[in-house]
Design a protein around this nucleic acid. Structure first.
Length: 270
DNA sequence: ATGGTCGGGCTCCGA
């Protein structure tokens, strides 16, 4: 039975993290990787290094902020189509969305806005953005039975995803409207792969650079891989790779990896 | 104790 391995990582500058990424690709060999916060314009994307590592890159970037990319292992890359870099219902100069269909699996890479604080304008932007995402997913879902949404959601879905729920109660990343938006995604027909396979595990994907947060494991689980219900039932493994957070000059996020055992079905092979 | 540390790119913004 063929397996399909997909990963999501907020690199917080692809320029700085490229050496980490290249050695990690060689070690883990995912079929598809979703990157967020590449922080570089498309003209500066390190395409040659990615191609030499065995991947075909797709990217939607901008100077300084945001930026998303998808790396597709070359053996799968011949069959990709229907690339989208924005929601039809949202005018937005920020590069936060990149969707593509690879061998019949719809893959949507998201860098959901951070929101800064509940009283900030950026929080309203986040909620509005989440509303456009909801419309997009509802419009697409029925056309793609095999569907994966992954990325930096900037939402810790439940108390189990927070090192200190009291300290974070009502704060941005943990507020009720954000969690409501996350539950709406699940209700639209998606499953949180990590939580499905590790129902009790307190693991995090992000630790603030400040205050020795990683050493003290003061983290949040805000990076996610969601799969459509039928696909999620074929998910055999999902984990957060904390080793990258221990390297010199790490990203503040660790990658999330999911593995699927795809049934032998001619309409559903990879 | 209301801080702190990164990255980008320019003396401050965003996370």
């Amino acid at each position: 039975m063929p397996t399909f391995k997909i990963a999501s990582w907020n690199v917080n500058s692809l320029r700085v993290r490229l050496p980490h990424l290249l050695s990690w690709l060689q070690e883990v060999e995912p079929d598809v990787v979703a990157l967020q916060e590449t922080k570089l314009p498309d003209a500066d994307f390190p395409s040659m290094e990615i191609v030499n590592a065995g991947y075909t890159p797709l990217f939607s970037g901008q100077k300084t902020y945001n930026g998303v990319a998808l790396l597709i292992k070359q053996k799968n890359a011949h069959d990709h189509e229907n690339i989208i870099t924005a929601f039809p219902t949202l005018e937005d100069i920020q590069r936060r969305v990149l969707a593509v269909t690879v061998n019949g699996i719809r893959i949507v890479n998201l860098y959901i806005p951070n929101g800064e604080a509940l009283l900030s304008e950026k929080y309203q932007y986040k909620l509005n953005w989440l509303s456009s995402l909801d419309s997009f997913l509802k419009a697409e879902r029925d056309h793609h039975p095999n569907y994966i949404i992954l990325g930096d959601f900037n939402i810790a879905p439940t108390e189990m995803d927070v090192h200190d729920p009291k300290e974070w109660e009502g704060q941005v990343l943990c507020s009720e409207p954000e969690r409501e938006a996350f539950r709406t995604m699940l209700a639209t027909g998606f499953t949180d792969c990590f939580r499905q396979l590790n129902p009790q595990e307190k693991s995090y994907s992000w630790w603030d650079y400040r205050m020795n947060s990683f050493k003290r494991n003061r983290g949040l689980r805000i990076d996610h891989i969601l799969a459509s219900t039928s696909l999620a039932s074929q998910c055999v493994k999902c984990y957060i790779d904390k080793t990258l957070r221990t390297l010199e000059r790490p990203s503040d996020h660790a990658p999330v990896v999911a593995e699927f055992a795809i049934g032998v079905d001619k309409n559903n092979t990879i």
